[in-house]
Design a protein around this nucleic acid. Structure first.
Lengths: 207, 207
DNA sequence: TACAAAAGCGAGCGGTCGCTCACATTATAA
DNA sequence: TTATAATGTGAGCGACCGCTCGCTTTTGTA
């Protein structure tokens, strides 16, 4: 297993711009041409930089992709934490609706990139791709524990695991498909149904 | 888009064995070495066959992988249909438990292969990889419609979509992770919790 | 046994890929 | 200004890839 950390840290303004251009180009190429076409030569070309420069800051292709993955999932996590921060006091139905909306918003942030990363890049950095999942589970688990006496499930770990993956997968599949389920994303059908799933699991009724 | 159908149909016993050996070798290499290492030369070598022979029956690498995908998902579908066939009359809690068990069994059939196909091969034949999902949705939809008056959701398409993807994703993630959630697979924790999720969504209570 | 069809072979072609390295250019410090 | 470090360049190496094609071997048929 080769190192994944940058070979060299950008010290001057110029090189910081190069570094950013490379990450941006990787994102662009992944989105527009897919993982298989995303050769390092192609990425360097799109970044307006030589391959040599690329390899000054990234030891290999994997590190390049991981940088993109981390940047993306950090954004998602930040968004989730922002909208969920002060939810501890809210009544459960409100909290669930907010949570589901946050998950929907996360998938809407950059659906194209999200799709490529999940479909084609998952195997590169499993650890990195699932940072978001893990953080979501932590947040849900904490919430469930704080509302232990209002909530049916008593195994919070398992409940958080089940809930997060269920919600994530349903949203993800809806984003992937371009046909009917996209419509259910537009109008509130899917949101309503996911909330019902979660609420009935937690309370036995969807209010 | 190149053709994906075999170039030549095996007519003699000998060639049918070659054909099968190639598909089996593809499966083995995918499982043991992953998609990236699964070159056609390597597959031919493992099959004990020359590359030339391989290309007599498969027009390109994609066709090879699709053959494996279809064989696997046909097995899953057959298994699902067998255990679900005469479930129309069963009370809902029993039916749900049977369905969830069938999904668990499907993922237990060849977890390694399932994992590689979902993680690394999804983008090759989206249409083919999701045959199983689509069939499961059809079956669930039909069941819901037949029990319309006993069940809370009234949009059967959406409900089937949500249920199948939720159940599938939770099981899939549990199979992927090698740590704690594997234990929840062994003892009945996960099965019980997934049943609860589905039952409360359908009935409002898990009985 | 003779012969055509079917099946099997594998060196190697044309191409792409990840990545290196000897060198050129630009910024910083003395 | 000049020495030194930081940054940037791109031709091209070695490895591997998917795939072809001229050829040999095996099989079914007469």
């Amino acid at each position: 297993m080769p190192t994944l950390k940058p070979r060299k840290r950008p010290k001057q303004q110029r090189s910081r711009e190069t570094y950013d251009a490379i990450v941006a180009a990787t994102t662009r190429v992944l989105k527009r041409e897919g993982y298989e076409k995303a050769s390092t030569n192609r990425i360097a070309e799109v970044a307006g930089v030589s391959v040599g420069s690329l390899y000054q800051y990234f030891p290999n292709k994997q590190a390049l992709v991981i940088a993109v993955v981390e940047r993306h999932s950090d954004q998602l996590i930040a968004m989730l934490e922002r909208t969920i921060a002060d939810l501890g006091a809210a009544p459960i139905p409100d909290a669930v609706r907010t949570f589901v909306r946050a998950m929907l918003a996360a998938h809407a942030l950059d659906p194209q990139l999200h799709r490529v990363l999940v479909q084609q890049v998952m195997h590169i950095g499993l650890e990195h791709t699932r940072k978001f999942d893990r953080r979501a589970q932590q947040l849900v688990r904490a919430y469930l524990e704080a509302h232990a006496d209002e909530v049916l499930p008593d195994d919070y770990d398992t409940a958080a695991f089940v809930l997060c993956h269920a919600v994530d997968a349903v949203i993800h599949m809806a984003v992937l498909e371009s046909d009917a389920s996209a419509a259910k994303l537009e109008d509130g059908t899917l949101e309503r149904e996911i909330c019902a799933l979660v609420l009935r699991y937690l309370l036995g009724s969807a209010d």
